[in-house]
């Protein structure tokens, strides 16, 4: 979309555009989370792949997902704290 084109957008159209962008970003982040979670929890919980995903493995995966979210949120908080600190240093 060129600059001249966006000049003609109504404010409703702009808002729609922004919503779409935000939605896309949220989807991308969720996809990343999902794929990382699968990778990490498979590694942790399925050490010897058997003929089915047994109940203890399922339990492990469920717990691993929750811990992965805990970790993600903690890391997110730590990083944003550090950013604040660095900004105050300047």
């Amino acid at each position: 979309m060129d600059a001249a084109g966006t000049n003609k957008l109504t404010s409703a159209q702009k808002e729609e555009l922004m919503d779409q962008v935000k939605q896309q970003m949220a989807i991308m982040s969720a996809q990343e989370l999902l794929s990382k979670m699968t990778e990490k929890c498979f590694k942790k919980c399925v050490t010897k792949p058997g003929t089915s995903l047994d109940s203890s493995e399922q339990k492990c995966v469920a717990m691993c997902m929750d811990r992965f979210m805990d970790s993600f949120n903690l890391v997110s908080r730590s990083y944003s704290n550090r950013l604040l600190q660095e900004r105050n240093k300047m």
Binding site: S29, F72, Y79, S80
Partner: peptide
């Protein structure tokens, strides 16, 4: 920010 958090968490 989000990409960096994913990276750190990894």
């Amino acid at each position: 920010f989000s990409a960096q958090v994913h990276n750190f968490n990894d």
